[in-house]
Design a protein around this nucleic acid. Structure first.
Lengths: 183, 183
DNA sequence: CAGTTTGTTCAAAAAAACTTGAACACAGGG
DNA sequence: CCCTGTGTTCAAGTTTTTTTGAACAAACTG
C-alpha cells in the first residue's frame, strides 16, 4: 500500500498513504464512535488526526480517508464542538489545519458536556412535566402509583447528576503517558 | 381506534388505556433508549413495565404499545438479557409475565456488563494487533510515532477499565427511594 | 393426538441515520 | 472587480437499523 511513496514536496497529491497501523487505529476509532452514538466518519477523522504528528487540512483528510467534502466538513465541525479536535493556522497557507486532542480528560469532559449534560437538563424538564401529569390524576391509588414512579425517576436523575463529576475526576487522574514534548 | 370500549371482562381486549403520565414516562424511556444506542421499542417496553405494579404478558405489551409481535418478543428478550426486565409466572395463566427492574444499580450493572465489558475486551485484542503492526514498521521515526500512539491508547484503555468499578460503586450507593413494599 | 395458545425466527418492508456532491458564501489576490 | 481557493449547507441518494408479520416450533389441554 504505502511501499515507496517518497513524497514529491511540490505536489500535495502524494498523500494516499496510510500505514497499516494507522488503518487499524482509524478502524478502532470508527468502531468506538459507533459505540458512542457518533457517526463512523467522525471516528475515522478523529482516528486519522490522532495518528499524525502534523495537523492536516480538510482536503487532506478527504483524500486520505476517501470521504466527501460534506462529511469532512461536518465531521470536523462536530469534533471541534466536542473539543476532540482543534484547529491551527499554518502560516503561509490559507487552509485551516486540524489536530486531535489526545488528553482523555478533555475528550471525556467534552463528551459529557455536549451529550450528558443536555440530557440531564432535558430530564429535569421532563420530570416536572411528569410530576404535573401525575398530580392531575383523580383516582388516589393511581396517583400514588404515578407519584412513586416519579420519585424513582427523580432519584435516578439525582444519582446520574452526582456521577458525572466523579467520572471527570477519575478519568482526569493520570492522563496521557509521558511524551517527548510537553504541552 | 379505542374509542369507547368499556371493557368486556370476558375478552382480554380492553387494555388500550395508557394514562397521560404513563405515555410521558414511556416517551422518556424511548428517548433514553435511543441515547444509549438501543432501539426505541426497547425503551417503550421498559417504560411501560416500569409504570405498572403488576407484571404484563407479551400480548398486553403489544396491545398497549401497538407494536408487533416480533418487536415485543425481541425487545423483551434483550431487556431480560440486560437484566432490565424479569419474568414471573402468574399461577393459572400459561403466559409468561414481565416486570421492570427499577434498581438503578442493577440496570447500570447489566448495561455495563453487556455493553462496556465486551468493548473493553475487544479493545485489548485490538491494542495487541496495533502493537504488532507498529513493531513491524521499518523506519525508526515512524515506528516511534506509532509506538507513542499505542501507549496513549493503552493508557486510555487502562483508565476506562479502572473507571467502571467506580461507576458501579457510586451508582449503587443510595438506590431506589423507600417504597411501600420491600424486596 | 388434534386443536389452541404462547412465543420465536427471519425475510422483507419501513424508517432512521449517514454520506454525498452540487450550489452557495466568503475571503483574499491579482 | 473577477477569479480562485476554502469551507458550509442541504436535498437527494445510499446504507444501516429497526419493525413487521407470516411461518414455524413448543407446550399445554381436552
Amino acid at each position: 500500500m504505502n511501499a515507496f511513496s517518497v513524497a514529491d514536496p511540490t505536489t500535495s497529491k502524494s498523500l494516499d498513504a496510510l500505514d497499516d497501523w494507522e488503518v487499524a487505529v482509524i478502524d478502532l476509532f470508527l468502531n468506538a464512535a459507533n459505540s458512542f452514538g457518533l457517526p463512523k466518519s467522525y471516528g475515522q477523522i478523529y482516528g486519522l488526526l490522532f495518528c499524525r504528528d502534523q495537523p492536516l487540512a480538510m482536503d487532506e483528510v478527504m483524500e486520505l480517508l476517501q470521504i466527501s467534502k460534506g462529511s469532512a466538513s461536518q465531521g470536523l465541525r462536530a469534533l471541534r464542538q466536542l473539543g476532540a479536535v482543534s484547529s491551527v493556522f499554518a502560516p503561509g497557507d490559507r487552509r485551516e489545519r486540524y489536530m486531535a486532542e489526545s488528553r482523555l480528560r478533555k475528550l471525556v469532559g467534552g463528551f459529557l458536556r455536549e451529550q450528558a449534560d443536555p440530557h440531564l437538563e432535558k430530564g429535569t424538564a421532563r420530570l416536572k412535566q411528569i410530576e404535573s401529569l401525575v398530580n392531575n390524576i383523580e383516582d388516589v391509588g393511581a396517583r400514588k402509583r404515578g407519584a412513586r414512579r416519579h420519585e424513582i425517576l427523580s432519584g435516578w436523575h439525582r444519582q446520574m447528576s452526582r456521577l458525572l463529576p466523579w467520572v471527570k475526576m477519575i478519568v482526569g487522574k493520570s492522563d496521557r503517558l509521558p511524551q517527548k514534548s510537553s504541552d
